[in-house]
Amino acid sequence: MKARIKITLKNGVLDPQGKAIQHALSALGIAGVEDVRQGKYIEVNLHETSPDKARETVERMCKDLLANTVIENYSYELLETP
């Protein structure tokens, strides 16, 4: 299975990189951008074919390494791989 993992900053955590992107967009003349938050996207291919077990593995990798839950949230979707 393939896991598509998204890691985002929690609400209330300042994101200076997002702010810099927002300013750059406005400098490009792209109007109407209300807010920008930058995050991470990680794809993981797993041997596992059982969605339940894959979910367990992905939960563990997110909690233990991929996200720092002090400041970040994570979410993911699992896809069958051919």
Binding site: V13, L14, P16, Q17, A20, N68, V70, I71
Partner: peptide, 16 residues
Amino acid sequence: CESGLLPGVLMRNASL
């Protein structure tokens, strides 16, 4: 901080 011996986290400087 990442190992959990101290709380919190060190983020990107506000000035970038």
